[in-house]
Design a protein around this nucleic acid. Structure first.
Lengths: 114, 114
DNA sequence: CCATCAGTTCAATAAATCTTGAACTAACCT
DNA sequence: AGGTTAGTTCAAGATTTATTGAACTGATGG
């Protein structure tokens, strides 16, 4: 019913390993993270060709609630970024290993996005 | 209906990142892997206090089909082990990072198992 | 104010996952 | 053969996850 002005993000210490692995086990979510690591902070719309909007919204929420991403409201946009420092502090090397593992077959690099 | 004599294991090259992450996102399965890394190859029964047998059997299958573990039939036992070399070759550093991340709150070390 | 744009929430459905009891298999022991 | 042990398969229910259309919110621009 309400659209919270401040979105919930878990504290660094509360980031749960199961939640992170689960979040990153989903290909669309992993592609989002991969792309964000290249782009840095970005508006959500850069992912509009990854899936229908309503589905993306669901995936954003899962990533955010798992502590993998941070979402900031900036005017009409949601700026999303990976919580690299928090993840590195809590689970050293984990994100790097997953990114490296996914690197070979990363996001399909849809035409007209670079 | 049939109980295959040879269990199916994916080839090293076919181990899928999503499947591995998904397999290791489950706490019971992660605890099994953690314990196996300490014990080396072990009969399944060492996990009998982790969960009901029928449930363990399900988790063994998921780990095996994801390419995380290998199961070998030895007389009346199933010997299970982690495919550390295959995982290291396919996804370098991934298993180590997950183990390190889980290390702090590893298996509950149930009494009378050491 | 009205329209639009970015993205969410709701509701409903489909699909996958988890869990367990009951019945089973295969190997071993006496 | 009969009994035991190790672990699986089947069937069914409970829970979770994924996906989508419709309706919404909140900010911006005419």
């Amino acid at each position: 019913m309400c659209m919270a002005r401040e979105l919930h993000h878990p504290d660094r210490d509360q980031i749960d390993l199961s939640a992170v692995l689960e979040a990153l086990s989903e290909p669309v979510r992993r592609d989002i993270v991969l792309r964000l690591l290249v782009e840095g902070e970005a508006p959500c719309q850069i992912f509009d060709n990854f899936a229908p909007k309503t589905n993306l919204s669901y995936h954003y929420a899962r990533l955010r609630e798992a502590g993998v991403t941070r979402t900031r409201i900036s005017g009409p946009y949601r700026m999303i970024s990976v919580r690299t420092e928090d993840l590195a502090a809590r689970f050293p090397g984990l994100l790097e290993a997953i990114v490296a593992a996914a690197g070979g077959k990363a996001s399909p690099a849809p035409a007209g996005t670079a």
